[in-house]
Design a protein around this nucleic acid. Structure first.
Lengths: 192, 192
DNA sequence: CCATAATGGGACATGAACGTCCCATACTCA
DNA sequence: TGAGTATGGGACGTTCATGTCCCATTATGG
């Protein structure tokens, strides 16, 4: 049962398809396979050659996107340093993979259905861990659940990506805008 | 060209369909007309009788949902009183029509495509007005654009609705959770 | 330069959702 | 109770994305 290692060409084609799928589906989840193939600059036949089924492509795209996000987040080393700084690195990392995150987050049921399959990798420090660490240190709001904070983190990041998508925010300002909101909200506080 | 006023029965049926459409499509935008008909407790024939086309139904649902949201927001009287309190009323009003808002907000392109059609009603004070008023009074963050704040407001409200949907937040706690986040973020501040 | 891998594009069958039509039934109001 | 309204459900044709095959063409690598 040895899987023959993929040719360079095949590997590139596969990744092009997965990337295009995430990008296209993030913006329109009713997109046709033909749409995706076109975006990947690949014939529809080729797409089917790599992913026989639509479900196959979808599953693969979920897995791939999840891994891409995971990798980006892992690089942020959110288990090191002060929670606040770690959070900022985390947000920056998430914005970096906005496409993939938008795909995963766009359809609410995607994450729900697949979330179980990807938990086991305990080597990667989770967002929840970071939030709880911050809460334990009294840096983050402890009046609300860590899970709820995580939801908002994803939502705000997605919103930032979307805002950039429609030209409402400059690309390079997304991270800062999200961080600003996430940390402080919109109410101006005056020193007593 | 006098439009005969609708029978009570027809009016009820129509509203049942529109409500069901918003609710079903909010949770699954690939839902079948049969799904919607079933949710509305109506035969598929009847649905087609009221909305010949899928596009017809969709357009009507957008309009209806928009008006429902508008009505709810109007009741919040966001042009009166201190901006902070008005904002809280606004969020509560939006959470109240969570279904409709989720439908409108769920598909990013829905609002983009239709947003032009609904602007003209200037009698209703807009969210943007409230945000700008708050910014002018130095109560809301002026470092970011009002449009961006509005995006986040919708996003957070939607996230709250979704969190309740999946049991992550209690229904009655959604409004408070959203307000808390929107105003203060998650970072704990200490008095100097 | 040649063998083989990889691709593109067309032809075709399939199935699901859609839109239309029709008729029997139930409900409403005078 | 009778006329007209509103509905449900089924039958039917159509469209479109999908999935499968096949063959000619191009790219790759030894």
């Amino acid at each position: 049962m040895s899987t023959t290692p993929e040719t360079g060409t095949r590997s590139r084609t596969r990744r092009a398809i997965l990337s295009a799928a995430a990008s296209v589906l993030a913006r329109n989840r009713a997109a046709t396979l033909a749409d995706i193939a076109e975006a990947a600059q690949v014939g529809r036949s080729t797409l089917h050659r790599y992913f026989p089924d639509r479900r196959d492509l979808f599953n693969a795209t979920v897995t791939d996107s999840f891994q891409a996000v995971e990798r980006s987040v892992a690089e942020a080393a959110i288990d090191h340093g002060p929670p606040l700084e770690a959070l900022r690195r985390l947000i920056a990392a998430m914005v970096d993979v906005g496409d993939r995150l938008a795909f995963l987050f766009g359809d609410a049921r995607v994450l729900e259905e697949y979330t179980d399959c990807f938990e086991p990798d305990l080597s990667v420090p989770t967002t929840i861990d970071l939030i709880k660490r911050g809460q334990a240190q009294g840096v983050f709001d402890s009046q609300v659940s860590a899970e709820w904070i995580q939801e908002m983190l994803w939502a705000l990041t997605y919103t930032g990506w979307e805002a950039a998508e429609k030209g409402l925010l400059p690309r390079h300002g997304v991270t800062a805008a999200v961080i600003r909101m996430f940390e402080n909200g919109i109410v101006v506080r005056r020193e007593p």
